[in-house]
């Protein structure tokens, strides 16, 4: 089934796209966090994280507003560099 799906339907179904766009737009309607403020938040967050976790990649921090099941979420993804002796 998913084979056919991939073959004939490369694009995501529009209802799914609509749902994702709605969820994003609604959280942003409710939580009035402007894009500029979000950038500021990211900058300060990376400064703090860098002080405690030297492996953090400050340039790659992602902060997103998400619509959760029972509560909305402010989510931060902070990728860490893998050091040699881990492998």
């Amino acid at each position: 089934m998913s084979f056919f799906n991939n073959l004939f339907n490369k694009r995501e179904r529009s209802a799914q796209v609509a749902k994702e766009r709605l969820l994003t737009v609604l959280v942003h309607d409710r939580v009035k966090l402007t894009p500029e403020k979000l950038e500021e938040l990211k900058a300060e967050l990376s400064a703090v994280v860098a002080r405690y976790v030297p492996e953090a990649e400050p340039a790659e921090i992602e902060v997103t507003l998400l619509r959760g099941e029972s509560a909305d979420m402010l989510k931060a993804d902070i990728p860490l560099r893998r050091s040699r002796h881990d492998e």
């Binding site: 179904r13 529009s14 209802a15 799914q16 609509a18 749902k19 709605l22 969820l23 609604l26 619509r67």
Partner: peptide, 17 residues
């Protein structure tokens, strides 16, 4: 028909949102 093809939000999805 559009809902079944995944090209329109369903009742359940709108209610959930």
């Amino acid at each position: 028909r559009l809902v079944n093809r995944g090209e329109m939000l369903s009742m359940e999805e709108v209610v959930e949102i």
